[in-house]
């Protein structure tokens, strides 16, 4: 049980770390997709089936496609998917900040006395219960998420679309 968790955690974090360090954008994106799938595996391990499949569907199915399309559309020449290296000072600064945050978080988690669960049976939530939760107490939030998604869809299309007046100029 714990072994499975450790394996998932290690693979997921390693995939994320390698993805963030790679020069090749496509490889980074694909490794991140793998990382998202690993997080879905963690949800499965924790017993949240519905969330795991949603994660898989939204991230591996949809977000990955958007990311890959964006990578391909923003390359000058199709052959150069390698980025120029980042400046060393930036990387060192980021590593320092990240390391500090990591230290603070690890210290906090390890030193805090978290109330252990009553060691009862694993909590399970069926799709039906989840549905009534979403439609009952959280109905307002559900509606708002629907509005956000609609607005986002329209907004994304408008932002990314070419205006015809300008497109002629761009191609010159």
């Amino acid at each position: 049980m714990t072994l499975a968790f450790l394996a998932i955690a290690f693979v997921t974090v390693a995939a994320a770390a390698v993805a963030m360090a790679l020069r090749n954008l496509i490889h980074s994106a694909l490794l991140l997709v793998f990382n998202w799938a690993g997080i879905a595996a963690f949800y499965l391990w924790a017993g949240a089936e519905f969330v795991a499949f949603s994660q898989l569907m939204v991230y591996v199915g949809a977000v990955s496609m958007v990311v890959l399309f964006a990578v391909l559309l923003t390359q000058r020449s199709p052959q150069s998917f390698r980025e120029q290296p980042d400046s060393i000072s930036r990387v060192i600064g980021a590593l320092l900040v990240g390391g500090a945050v990591l230290g603070v978080l690890f210290g906090a988690v390890l030193s805090s006395r978290l109330a252990p669960s009553a060691a009862t049976a694993t909590p399970t939530i069926s799709v039906k219960e989840l549905g009534s939760l979403l439609m009952g107490p959280h109905a307002a939030a559900l509606l708002i998420v629907g509005v956000i998604l609609t607005v986002t869809l329209i907004g994304a299309v408008i932002i990314a679309s070419t205006d015809h007046a300008e497109s002629g100029k761009d191609e010159s």
Partner: peptide, 17 residues
Amino acid sequence: LDAGVLYFFAAGAATEL
């Protein structure tokens, strides 16, 4: 699976990759 249909289409969506 309690969410079998969702699983089916989640696995299907991954083929695009």
